[in-house]
């Protein structure tokens, strides 16, 4: 449970950080909150030759909020965003999701952008970014680029971040409707066996827009547009079986030691209906 040897870098600016990252290339790994990386190192499941600690980089901790959404800097901790009234007013789904992320101690250290780059298909923040159609800003020695969520998550624990790039911020767009996030985990704070976030827009009580994202049931967060299935009806008269079936068609749950694939499929269905109703109610 001790990490293998690595060279440690502690840049103080984004420019310095991306220069180091350019130099070490695929042998480098960025350390932000460390809530996933450090256990991987200690278990010797990861052995990067270079660790680039960005915690001393100035200007990456900001949370910027306006009417269009929330931009979260690479060093903003889960807990900071969770407690930011402005951010959570602009995008309530952030707090709804963050309450489900592990435990307070982990949220005090872990970063939102770090969670996105880690790209765990069971994690909440990638799902939120995917549902809202947000984006991640990547900096490199050669310049910056903004990658849309749909292109950012490329596989389990895989993102579009290239060697030499540093994710400097993420943008979570506002949504003029209700949202919710519901999970079932084995224990409080565990990765969910299944979880669904929903975004719903109502017009005169009729559902005019609805979409969900499912965690833990595919290689990446699975976003499903269900506006059509909701049929421009009030919540009480929606054909929920059709909505659930549309989502269940799209997910690819797998069995693990905590749950069978069938159970995850069933559970996702239950949570789709619950999450959409909660979002319509929000």
């Amino acid at each position: 449970m001790k990490p293998p040897p690595f060279d440690y870098h502690a840049p103080t600016s984004v420019r310095e950080a991306v220069e180091v990252l350019a130099e070490v290339g695929a042998h480098g790994k960025v350390l932000a909150g460390g809530q996933s990386l450090i256990p991987l190192l200690n278990m010797r499941l990861a052995a990067p030759a270079h660790l680039v600690d960005i915690n001393r980089v100035a200007g990456l901790g900001e949370i910027q909020t306006d009417a269009t959404g929330v931009r979260v800097g690479a060093l903003a901790r889960h807990a900071q965003v969770e407690r930011s009234a402005a951010a959570c007013l602009a995008q309530p789904l952030l707090r709804q999701a963050l309450k489900l992320v592990a435990h307070p101690v982990i949220r005090n250290r872990g970063t939102i952008v770090g969670s996105l780059v880690h790209a765990d298909p069971s994690a909440e923040l990638p799902a939120v970014l995917a549902l809202l159609g947000g984006s991640v800003r990547l900096a490199a020695a050669t310049g910056e680029r903004e990658v849309a969520a749909a292109d950012f998550f490329t596989g389990p624990m895989e993102s579009a971040t290239r060697p030499g790039e540093l994710a400097v911020s993420a943008f979570f767009p506002a949504w003029d409707g209700g949202t919710s996030f519901i999970e079932v985990a084995r224990r409080h704070g565990d990765y969910a066996m299944a979880g669904v976030a929903a975004a719903v827009r109502l017009d005169d009580l009729r559902i005019t827009a609805a979409k969900v994202v499912c965690v833990s049931v595919g290689p990446v967060p699975v976003v499903v547009e269900v506006t059509g299935e909701c049929g421009n009806r009030p919540v009480a008269s929606v054909d929920w079986r059709a909505v659930v079936a549309a989502v269940q068609d799209r997910i690819e749950p797998e069995a693990d030691i905590h749950a069978t694939a069938d159970y995850r499929r069933h559970l996702t269905g239950v949570l789709v209906e619950r999450a959409l109703k909660a979002a319509a109610d929000a």
């Binding site: 084995r186 066996m193 749950a259 069978t260 159970y263 069933h266």
Partner: peptide, 8 residues
């Protein structure tokens, strides 16, 4: 017994 077991 887990929820998955009970479902089964």
């Amino acid at each position: 017994i887990s929820p998955s077991d009970l479902y089964d």
